[in-house]
Simulated scan of single mutants.
Amino acid sequence: MAAKKKTAEATPVIRAIKAFDQNLKCRDFQFAIGETFTHVGTVKACEGGFHAITGHPLAVFGYYPPAGTRFCLVEQSGATDTDDGEKTASEILKVGQEIGLSALVQEAVKWVQERSTPEGETATGTRGAASSTGYQGAASSTGDYGAASSTGTRGAASSTGTRGAASSTGDYGAASSTGTRGAASSTGTRGAASSTGDQGAAMASGFEGRVMGADGNALFAIERETWNGPIVSIASGIVGQDGIKAGAWYQAKSGKLVEVQP
């Protein structure tokens, strides 16, 4: 069983990524940002303990979808156990800062660069371009007029510069645009696109794709019969108008943007 209590941090400390539902719960256990929790009982991967991603940050998409999920930086300590090097169970978990998709992509880019593997790229100059084609890859563009593209499964693309573009075409991928007049596009199955900068746009054209935006951003979504089936309907709208809420995720259903829960 798991119990919450304040505890002194043990060493060594493992920095990790953890996903939660919209209520900051995981497996019905209630967490809180800034608090430390201790598991009582056996610590074993997939069996007992608080689990978090200690491998490639985008591996979190294997357990929680990009849309409708909350992500936090966490610290694990005390007794730990891992069975695959990707996820780790720990006795003690401290929940730190909450991050969005864009920051999660940045974490993935950092992870890749530190290991000198070609799974992700970053572009920081004006009109720069970054492309990622590998499984769980990450592409980040931070300069104005930049472009980031991710085509691998569970990949992520982030564009933070003015008029930048982020595109994710792989299944379960995520595209995030935070710059002014930016665009985020997700075409893979169950992908997610978010546009949170001023006057931006988010589009999802894959099966069960989701879109989200800040006030004033445009949302476009396509409804498909199956993952490779024909288009059933399309829907569009502007966040802040006609009942479309900022920060909420939407899918196209019967020609309308319908809010969906995680």
Results as ranks from 00 to 15, higher is better:
K4Y: 14
A8D: 09
T11P: 03
T11S: 14
I17M: 15
K18D: 12
A19Q: 02
D21E: 15
Q22F: 13
Q22R: 12
R27K: 12
G34T: 00
T38C: 08
K44R: 13
A45R: 10
E47G: 00
H51G: 08
A52Y: 07
I53D: 11
T54H: 11
P57A: 14
L58H: 10
A59K: 13
G62L: 08
Y63D: 02
G68K: 02
T69R: 00
V74D: 09
S77I: 06
A79V: 08
T82H: 09
T82C: 08
G85T: 10
E86R: 06
Q97A: 14
E98G: 01
I99S: 06
Q106M: 12
K110I: 11
W111Y: 15
Q113D: 06
T117H: 13
E119T: 01
T122L: 02
T124P: 06
R127Q: 09
G128K: 00
A129I: 08
A129V: 03
G134H: 13
Y135S: 07
T142G: 08
D144G: 00
S149I: 08
S150D: 12
A157S: 09
R163N: 04
G164W: 05
A165V: 11
T178N: 13
G179C: 04
F207G: 06
G213E: 04
G216I: 01
G216R: 01
G216V: 00
G216N: 07
E223N: 12
E223D: 11
T226Q: 13
T226F: 15
S236Q: 10
I244F: 07
A246L: 11
W249H: 10
A252S: 07
S254C: 10
K256S: 11
L257S: 09
